[in-house]
């Protein structure tokens, strides 16, 4: 579904991505893990067209979207719940969701999308008319995910959906990710919480300073010593610290 080949992205003289390749197949949950500054968010920004790829290619459903404008990419069926939520602070919850469906023209479909999102997040339904900037962090996260679902994406990009949330909410968000996936949306998930990410994902890619260090089946990586030591606070990490 999504195929990235040898993607290079630079911010001025700094190479944020030094030629990464990865693939997401229809129906999968794929997670991209790695420490801060490894290039995870940059990867998503490149997919959505917010940063320019210096070289390499990004293909979505067989089409080259490497240099397409963001609004063209979104209307092809990709949507993103960005890091830091990025809600529209002075708009209501409902208006935020309306913007999520900005690229859609089918009125009935948009109504269905509202129903689906309000069904997934009853809390958002209660706060429909509330100004988004006054929501709690958890509610804003729900709004960011809900907004991304409004376009009925084929591929949903989730950037740090659990960041800054209370543990019970984290659990809820991950359950939700699984259920959205079961309803037929392919997901590319970025997480600091590698443990949780690997337990819901089918496959995983590990990014280290702009390169894919290794990749594989998520359950296998969950047991992998290299992953355990670097990202899961496992035995290796403990002994290294000691």
């Amino acid at each position: 579904m999504l195929k990235i080949d040898n993607l290079v992205v630079s911010y001025g003289p700094i190479n944020a991505l030094k030629g990464i390749s990865l693939e997401v197949k229809q129906g999968e949950i794929v997670t991209l893990i790695g420490s801060n500054g490894a290039g995870k968010s940059t990867t998503l920004s490149a997919i959505t067209g917010l940063v320019r790829a210096q070289s390499g290619s990004i293909r979505f459903l067989g089409e080259d979207i490497t240099h397409a404008a963001p609004h063209r990419i979104i209307s092809r069926g990709i949507s993103i719940s960005p890091e830091g939520r990025e809600v529209f602070p002075a708009l209501t919850v409902h208006e935020n969701l309306r913007l999520g469906a900005y690229t859609r023209k089918d009125k009935a479909g948009i109504e269905q999308a509202y129903d689906r999102v309000y069904d997934l997040f009853p809390r958002l339904k209660e706060r429909m008319g509330q100004i988004a900037g006054t929501l709690s962090g958890g509610e804003q996260q729900m709004l960011a995910i809900g907004r991304a679902l409004m376009s009925a994406p084929r591929l949903l990009l989730l950037d740090e959906p659990s960041m800054g949330l209370a543990p019970n909410l984290v659990l809820m968000i991950f359950e939700l990710i699984e259920s959205i996936n079961k309803q037929g949306t392919t997901i590319l998930l970025i997480e600091q919480n590698a443990n949780m990410a690997l337990s819901v994902a089918d496959r995983a890619f590990v990014l280290e300073t702009g390169k894919i260090a290794f990749s594989g089946d998520a359950r296998t990586l969950l047991q992998d010593d290299r992953v355990r030591s670097a990202y899961l606070g496992g035995k290796g990490a403990q002994s290294r610290r000691g």
């Binding site: 959505t48 209307s75 949507s79």
Partner: peptide, 24 residues
């Protein structure tokens, strides 16, 4: 109107406006 909503979106958060597919 829809274009008005897009204007308010760009006004409040240009990056997010790009992300929802507004032709900024």
């Amino acid at each position: 109107t829809k274009i008005g909503l897009a204007m308010r979106a760009v006004q409040q958060n240009t990056k997010a406006a790009h992300m929802v597919g507004v032709n900024v």
